[in-house]
Amino acid sequence: MEIIKSFTFGGFPSRAVLYDKQDLLPEDTALFVADSHTKSLISRPEGLAEVILTPGEEGKQWDAVDKILKLAMKEGLARDSVICGAGGGVVTDMTAFAGSLYMRGCRVILIPTSLLAMVDAALGGKTGIDAGVYKNMIGSFYPAEEVRICPEILGDLPEKEYRNGLGEVLKTAIIGDAALLNLIKERRESVLARDPEVLAQIIRRCILVKGALVEEDLREKGRRAFLNLGHTFGHALEAVSEFRWSHGAGVVWGMGKALEASVRLGLAKPAWADEMKQLFLDYGYELEAPEDPVGILEAMKMDKKKQRGKLRYILPAGPQDIRIEFLDPDFVLEVLKA
């Protein structure tokens, strides 16, 4: 066990900790949550109460949370009981959401099993479910008391899911870590080969960047919104495509559009924007989408990150230089068509 960092998120103590694989499950777990893909990754005692969910974004709906809550009641869990969720961002989001609701908040410990969950989704307290195809429309802020990380698990992660996580890594580097961005540029082959030493650096650096922003701003009133770089565009693409575009691929595509908007507004230098887009392409991401721009714009209107009824767009003006802008819909449509 090695503590990466202890945080306080809006009064909630939370910490990210490295564990060996055999020690991942907390001894006092009262209810275990996983999906049919991740349940076999975690050793657990016979007879432990468990909920095994349908994998994927399509299953991130109220019925899944209801299953967790009903079993918690059936098992007689108390407020100090531990619900442990092991999985990718979908599982960790729903587990923590259920924990925030049960008795107005019970103990939650998360074991992220995907790169995306390790570097982003499991840390920081955003929990929730989708409403149909609209992402994370129903949820709460409820940080897990501990996020248990084991990079060894990533060795068997499907390539598509690994690249989902790399999309969030790229985002985090642009937002807040020049050294991480240089590592991604200079050691692409090692990153794609899942070199253990490189992965350990990536995960640690991403956790430190995100943790610092969330400590400052749990409820996303200010700088935490930077973590949504690429997401307003990307979530809309996911919705319009009915999740044919995965989250990480959607975020990288969205960052491409955010760069385009930033250049058009005179915020980002074209040469730097082109350099970032080439980096995305070098990692195998798509920056063109066949979906209807008008449909994507309409889907954006359902984005929950509004202020006074207006959408906020997170735009990169340069490395570690992020701006929040309110953009005219006609301007956004032109960016989508570009």
Rank of each mutant, 00 (worst) to 15 (best):
L123I: 14
E238V: 06
D93C: 10
D177K: 09
E58V: 14
M255P: 13
F32Y: 11
R205L: 09
T54D: 12
D28H: 13
Y102A: 06
G56E: 03
K269S: 13
I322V: 14
A338W: 10
N164S: 15
E46R: 11
H247D: 07
L287V: 07
A289H: 01
G256A: 11
P158V: 08
K306Y: 04
A273I: 09
R312K: 15
V251T: 10
G284L: 12
P45S: 05
D292A: 00
V214R: 02
R312S: 15
I296L: 00
Q201Y: 04
E27P: 08
A289P: 05
I184G: 08
R44E: 01
D35W: 00
L259C: 06
L327M: 15
A72C: 08
K301N: 13
K210C: 05
E260P: 02
L53T: 03
I52K: 01
E50V: 01
G284V: 12
K269F: 00
T172F: 07
E146C: 06
R104H: 14
V17N: 06
E57K: 11
E189P: 02
R219C: 12
A178Q: 14
T38F: 02
V294R: 14
G76V: 07
E27D: 13
V91I: 14
A179L: 12
A122V: 07
S246T: 12
I109M: 10
K5C: 15
A72R: 00
L218K: 09
I109E: 15
A96K: 00
S40F: 03
S140L: 05
I149R: 02
K257N: 11
I4W: 08
V251P: 02
S140F: 03
P55R: 00
K305N: 13
G124F: 05
M302Q: 15
A72S: 13
M94G: 01
K257H: 10
A86L: 04
I153L: 15
Q201E: 15
T95Y: 03
K221T: 12
L41W: 04
F326R: 11
R244A: 14
I207Q: 09
L157Q: 04
W253P: 01
A86Y: 03
V91L: 08
L31R: 01
E238F: 06
E57Y: 07
K301Y: 05
P270C: 10
G176L: 12
